[in-house]
Write a protein that binds this DNA or RNA. Structure first.
Lengths: 210, 210
DNA sequence: CATTCCTTTATTACTAAGTCTTAAGATCTA
DNA sequence: TAGATCTTAAGACTTAGTAATAAAGGAATG
């Protein structure tokens, strides 16, 4: 498929590049893409000191896991560009077609909310935080393809409660603004499912300790 | 050495917890930690629908790679069970692991918002509607596996503005409540990107129609 | 031409961490 | 005591590799 056979040197370069693009390729897939046998790929990996796919996956996974001190990846919407816990932060998100209302390319409000909410939780200076309430406005619709920059400021902090203000802009135009009340929770509270008010939570008597 | 043998139920819980803490554990390690045989762990994973370690690693890796942009699809959130435009509606959503905060299985606020927002827009009696603003509260955390029933009522309608109230419950307990101001838009307004207030919108002359 | 060297491919044996199936004990319960 | 459920075991197969060894191919050179 790649037509002519490359030199070994070139193949090594291509290999490195392919793996950088997608570290989850197996030897078999690589062999197919480069038009050589699996064994050749193995030799190449050996020569270049590249680990096998399982290793690469595990490395990525554990990096993703450990890099989760400040809540970068997993369930955060938008890319956290900057975050100073307790002070403020910045998040970037590109409005994609999947986020839009039918026709018209208008981004659904909950995407903007999700980005802002993620950011607000991130800037709360606490290992675990939840949204308690929010007051939000969508002064202007955002559209597919636009770059949404959300900026958060912690307005005040009283004990375990943070008030965070988030404004999301496209260029200079605000498309979202809101105030979030974020509650910092300690482990016990979370684990027990009690939330601070109105007493019992699940009430199913599940107790785990370790 | 967890000492005494746990019940199956308890073991399942422990297993989930262990894997949440460290998804890269092999069956063998889990077996050792829980004091049962590997086969038992395999059966447990089968029963709980948990993939093998390689899969978990790959999933984590690819999620980390793709910057996990639109996560767990926020697009259509919840199943619309019933909807009477201009009056009210009902939406059901099962809280999935992908919606949760790491550890602790607490559902992120923006999923609740997304469900409620989707429903609020749906019950607005208009072909095209957008959220203008919202005031929301999360009186209680929701957890993975719970069934979230959102109920919407149109409180008032003035011209193109609807005020919709949404309350989401798990069993009888409210986990979300909010008021949405929904704006019904006509085709022209939407297509031109003008939103009702503050004059010009994008100003970049982008007009798309289909 | 044959030889030598390098690269590539093929073959075989082996591993980790699973899969799926069937079967045999152990334990609980009616 | 009998039946059902839970747990462990055993055997065959899978994927994506490691490692070692053998064989084939082309290109330059004496």
């Amino acid at each position: 498929m790649t037509g002519k056979r490359l030199s070994k040197e070139q193949r090594h370069q291509t290999l490195l590049q392919k793996l950088e693009e997608n570290p989850l390729l197996t030897d078999e897939q690589l062999a197919k893409e480069l038009g050589v046998s699996i064994q050749t790929i193995r030799l190449d990996r050996l020569a270049l000191g590249l680990p096998e796919m399982k290793e690469r996956a595990k490395n990525l996974a554990s990096r993703a896991l450990s890099g989760e001190h400040y809540p970068a990846s997993l369930e955060v919407v938008g890319d956290l560009l900057y975050c100073e816990p307790g002070v403020g932060g910045l998040s970037r998100m590109v409005a994609e077609p999947g986020m839009s209302l039918t026709r018209y390319n208008v981004i659904r409000g909950h995407y903007l909310f999700a980005q802002a909410n993620s950011l607000a939780v991130a800037v709360a200076d606490a290992p675990h935080a939840l949204t308690g309430s929010a007051r939000v406005e969508f002064p202007h619709p955002a559209r597919v393809g636009e770059v949404l920059m959300a900026r958060a400021r912690v307005l005040e902090r009283r004990g375990r409660r943070f008030v965070v203000e988030v404004v999301t802009r496209v260029e200079e135009k605000a498309v979202f603004q809101g105030k979030f009340l974020i509650l910092a929770l300690d482990e016990r509270t979370l684990a027990e499912g009690i939330f601070g008010m109105e007493g019992k939570a699940t009430g199913d008597g599940r107790e785990k300790d370790d």
